[in-house]
Design a protein around this nucleic acid. Structure first.
Lengths: 112, 112
DNA sequence: TGATAATATTCGAAATCTCGAATATACTGA
DNA sequence: TCAGTATATTCGAGATTTCGAATATTATCA
């Protein structure tokens, strides 16, 4: 079914559709890191890191290698890093609009 | 802020994180289409198409060109199509797991 | 075995997303 | 101007996501 495949694709994008998970993938570009180290770098709750890692794992975006007490995570498919690179181009091309949008987001938040 | 930029990036991915919106972008690869034509091809409600288009527009994934009565949409940044191409590689590489996951999704849905 | 450390899972409340129905807006042509 | 068509927006209910707190699991080491 065309639809199921799209659901799968959407699932991958959706998994990347959270700032913390973007941060995790970006951090892992530099090489594998333990779950604890990831949480430490991002300054978020242990449980929360685990939850986000679970989502990335379930979409096979990230893989965990158990070593003794801890689990080391890495990006499981290099193609994804290529995607992020191209996205960088994309973001730069849209930079003007981006800055404007960031301003709007900030204003919107301030107004709450 | 690193964080705001990531929020922006995540927003783009999140916008792509829905099967209908993936479908819209894929359909638009073939060239611009009116909102009505998109809805017709996908077989979804008019209001719903408009809502999804609004989301894609707000993330600048898609742009609308008004012509008389109707609005013609197209993918606004070619880099995004490159991303989708690489994603295709990605999906093919993960095909085995993909098939399994599709099965799981199907089973999960059937069980509701 | 018991204590500690690292990670994962479960739970519940708040926030966000999604859909169709209803309504609004904008353009065209009689 | 009025009727009709195309698209957008608003609203509310139901589904999903997100977070921290609490708890569970697994491995290590004394």
């Amino acid at each position: 079914m065309q639809n199921l495949l799209r659901t799968y694709k959407a699932g991958v994008f959706q998994a990347l559709g959270h700032p913390t998970r973007i941060a995790i993938v970006e951090i892992l570009r530099g090489g594998e890191l333990s779950a604890g180290a990831i949480g430490e770098r991002l300054g978020i709750e242990q449980a929360n890191v685990s939850q986000h890692l679970a989502i990335l794992r379930s979409r096979q975006i990230v893989a965990g290698r158990k070593e003794g007490n801890q689990v080391f995570y890495s990006v499981s498919n290099p193609a994804l890093l290529k995607v992020l690179d191209i996205m960088r181009e994309y973001f730069q091309k849209n930079l003007k609009d981006t800055v404007q949008m960031l301003g709007e987001i900030k204003a919107e938040r301030a107004g709450r």
